[in-house]
Design a protein around this nucleic acid. Sequence first.
DNA 1: GTCTATAAGATGATAGAC
DNA 2: GTCTATCATCTTATAGAC
Lengths: 196, 196
Amino acid sequence: MNVMKPLGKTAAALADTFTELVMERGYNAVSYADLAKRLGIRTASIHYHFPTKSDLGMTVLRRYQDGAFSTLGPLVPGDAQSYRNAFENMLIPVRSLAKMQSSSCLVGVLGAEFASLPDDLKAGVSQFFETQQQFLTRLLDEGRDAGAFAFDGDAEAMAKVIASTLQGAILIKKARGDAHYMDSILDSLNAILMPD
Amino acid sequence: MNVMKPLGKTAAALADTFTELVMERGYNAVSYADLAKRLGIRTASIHYHFPTKSDLGMTVLRRYQDGAFSTLGPLVPGDAQSYRNAFENMLIPVRSLAKMQSSSCLVGVLGAEFASLPDDLKAGVSQFFETQQQFLTRLLDEGRDAGAFAFDGDAEAMAKVIASTLQGAILIKKARGDAHYMDSILDSLNAILMPD
DNA sequence: GTCTATAAGATGATAGAC
DNA sequence: GTCTATCATCTTATAGAC
């Protein structure tokens, strides 16, 4: 499950560069010409690897999603540490993004441009957020039962708060160009989830 | 202060339509041709009102900012109700956006496309978030002193949490097409600011 | 896999008539 | 204020040679 067909060298470089530029500018502001210039090839060569722009978009979205959810580790009911670990693993890419002052979350950027996206990307973005919501809800619900977290109210509502706060903070951080914007955000979320 | 030179009928319609489309699609996905079609005029006529696209962008951003901050009412130190009112007034446009399933915050969308924006828009977007941060910090700080809110930690950190959560939630709501996504978000924020 | 050449359409913008 | 006409440039994409 979650078989991610490995990309060739050029295709991977294209995916990496496209991801990087979209996180800075948005999907509609990155062209095949931009990628060609960066990699020192011609736009026609890009179409060999990714026939359409939406193919490229779907590839980078799948990779991003895979990186976000397949590295969290097992959730073991009753084992508080497994939930703390999964939560901390989930924050690894967030902490990384926090330091990149001109980038924000790929899926957040795509979400902002939602109505202008090709249909397959629309579906992929929706699904990312749904998957994230389901995972976080389970993490918080079972994690609270296991004693890893402590908060009032239902886990689903808290999952929405966590996802929204991180997404919004990453966006505002980029617009303000402040690589330290998220420091206090992460502290605040910790305080909300683990008061004492 | 805050003199907003009134726009003529066509210019206002252009600003309204541009705002609406950008909130759905993003700045780079809305063209003069889109606006011309909507209003039944020619693209050349748009250039009469707004010589460049960035002129139009700045106009809609200023209007949006004015609508967000000039309607909050006075903050009266010691008067808890004035802070509760200002907070609730701040949420009026948020509640309105919450119901529009395919739109998100204009400034959030522009923030997502930040690196691709013309320089004046970049500066305007940065400034919006800075102004919001300053206003919210004061609102929460003085409001807590007045007894309108109750929370731990410093007001600046809480202001970041509030702004980020709302921004992120509005974005995710659009991507999920869920007009009810924000219901629990607003409840959760209330619980965080006014526990008991 | 990468190239040249090219197409067909979109895009932001200007000049000048009405 | 709005129009027609026009522009230079960019954008995604294809055909076919190497």
